[in-house]
Design a protein around this nucleic acid. Structure first.
Length: 152
DNA sequence: GCCAACGTTGGC
DNA sequence: GCCAACGTTGGC
């Protein structure tokens, strides 16, 4: 099993929104970054565990845990000319963008803030903490995962 | 709201 | 293939 971190702006889609969804499951659509896409398309497996991270908000940080449901598949929002994630270069025959479904597991007991994460040496190699990092989906090592859960 | 950092685009 | 311009991300 692998571990991940996925960012979302809570104003667009929050951990509470995920919890409120039917089956508490949601397709993680709209990702338009190749590195992030490759993680979803090529590397994510059913049952992988994922930190839900709130970005671009008052207190950015880890707010919950979810899991990957099933295999990746083409992102249908790329095919909708009316939608904001439309990409004319992606078609059902030759899809460019992929996603996975994620399922809510739980909130963390509190927000583990970015500011707090920055203070821990064992986490310093996380892409999340690198200055200027904009990757919205990134792998987390088992060591980092366990360490962060002990901060909870 | 500001702006640094970064990825993408497109002219050449 | 280079690189300037541009748009976006996301912390602060």
């Amino acid at each position: 099993m692998s571990y991940w971190l996925m960012k979302s702006e809570p104003e667009a889609f929050s951990i509470d929104d995920l919890q409120a969804r039917p089956n508490q499951t949601e397709p993680w659509d709209g990702v338009r970054n190749y590195q992030a896409r490759n993680f979803m398309r090529d590397d994510m497996q059913e049952g992988d565990q994922v930190f839900f991270y709130h970005s671009n908000c008052a207190e950015p940080g880890i707010v919950g845990i979810m899991e990957v449901v099933g295999k990746s598949y083409p992102d249908p929002t790329a095919f909708d000319p009316q939608g904001k994630y439309f990409d004319a270069k992606s078609s059902p025959a030759r899809p460019r963008w992929f996603l996975v479904d994620v399922k809510y597991l739980r909130h963390t007991r509190r927000t583990i803030s970015l500011a707090e994460l920055k203070g821990h040496d064992p986490l310093e190699n996380m892409p999340l903490l690198r200055k200027g990092n904009r990757l919205s989906i990134m792998p987390v090592t088992k060591e980092q995962w366990d360490y962060i859960l002990r901060l909870e």
